[in-house]
């Protein structure tokens, strides 16, 4: 590389800081951090779709599928975090690949709501399945890490580092991918599918690839969430409100940068946590109000704050 990629540098610094901070964080901070990483990963998938011109109101499908796939493995005696997360990610990816053949033919609101329809099918199946605890879900046993079986607080500390490493790899990977031809074709498909076809490539194929990717990372986020909370249940894993949260985070973050999704997810967790703590009757009101404020004052999301700052730095002084 002839030049240094600022985003990769930024992500690497954030990775190192969080890595070290993990050993000093208060337990509740780490818990919020874990959830932010998990949800941020899902939002990263939505960001890729968004750049292709598509919004999904149903990615709780893959989030929930990944979470339940990982959790169900613990029921039959597997506890290794690597295996669980890999299985959750892969299961969601395969599902996205299969549904992708249908969904890649739809655009706009039809795409968004068809996703939601599929996610509600999963929700319905889980709620009706008593073996999976129905609406109560079931608890996920403490994971081991390649034979290392941490106890007490060490479980979350290890899980945090485990999650951090994988999200770092995924995020840098997505950032680099966006500079490739296939990554750049997001723009082409969003702007003009006819031209893409007449340049000799299938727009639907491009969308399918992006869709499978978004499914994979959503499954990853779900599996991490299952391990972090130690519990899976349909309402916090597969309900349509969960899908809404992911779209919320994506709007909050903006699609300017891959790192933004984690910041957006963190802001979301903080708003929700504090709103719930200080205004238990009105927390949804506060959440909605902050979304409104973002749309009105920062339509390009939190990330546009950074680019605004950078622009004013560069502006010549009068």
């Amino acid at each position: 590389m002839r030049y240094i990629d600022k985003t990769v540098v930024g992500l690497t610094i954030a990775f190192l800081v969080l890595f070290i901070a993990d050993f000093f964080m208060a337990e509740w901070v780490r818990f919020i951090g874990l959830q932010s990483l998990a949800r941020g990963a899902v939002a990263l998938g939505l960001l890729v779709l968004w750049r292709t011109g598509l919004v999904s109101f149903g990615h709780a499908l893959y989030f929930g599928f990944g979470a339940y796939a990982a959790a169900m493995l613990t029921l039959i005696g597997y506890h290794d975090a690597f295996l669980l997360v890999f299985a959750g990610t892969l299961a969601a990816g395969v599902l996205a690949y299969l549904l992708g053949f249908l969904l890649r033919r739809y655009r706009a609101i039809f795409f968004a709501l068809l996703n939601m329809a599929f996610s509600m099918i999963l929700y319905g199946v889980i709620v009706k399945t008593e073996e999976l605890g129905s609406t109560d879900g079931f608890s996920v046993l403490t994971p081991t890490f390649l034979g290392y079986a941490p106890q007490g607080e060490a479980v979350q500390t290890t899980l945090f580092i485990f999650t951090l490493v994988f999200t770092y790899i995924i995020t840098v990977g997505v950032h680099l991918y966006m500079k490739t031809t296939l990554g750049g074709m997001s723009m082409a498909v969003r702007e003009n599918e006819i031209r893409v076809e007449y340049l000799g490539y299938s727009a639907e194929k491009v969308i399918h690839v992006k869709y499978v990717f978004s499914g994979l990372v959503a499954g990853f986020g779900g599996a991490i969430m299952a391990l972090a909370i130690g519990q899976v249940d349909p309402d916090s894993m597969a309900n349509w409100t969960v899908s809404g949260e992911f779209v919320f985070i994506t709007i909050l973050s903006g699609i300017g940068n891959v790192g933004a999704t984690y910041i957006g997810a963190l802001v979301f967790e903080l708003i929700r946590t504090y709103a719930f703590e200080y205004a238990p009757q009105f927390w949804q009101f506060i959440l909605g109000g902050s979304l409104l404020a973002i749309i009105m004052f920062l339509p390009d999301g939190i990330w546009s704050l950074f680019s605004r700052l950078r622009r004013s730095e560069k502006a010549p002084s009068p």
Binding site: Y177, T180, T181, L182, M185, L199, G200
Partner: peptide, 16 residues
């Protein structure tokens, strides 16, 4: 983009 789509095939799609 026109050049990239025309020139890239298979794994070449993952080159810059």
């Amino acid at each position: 983009m026109a050049y990239a789509i025309t020139e890239a095939t298979g794994l070449g799609l993952l080159s810059p």
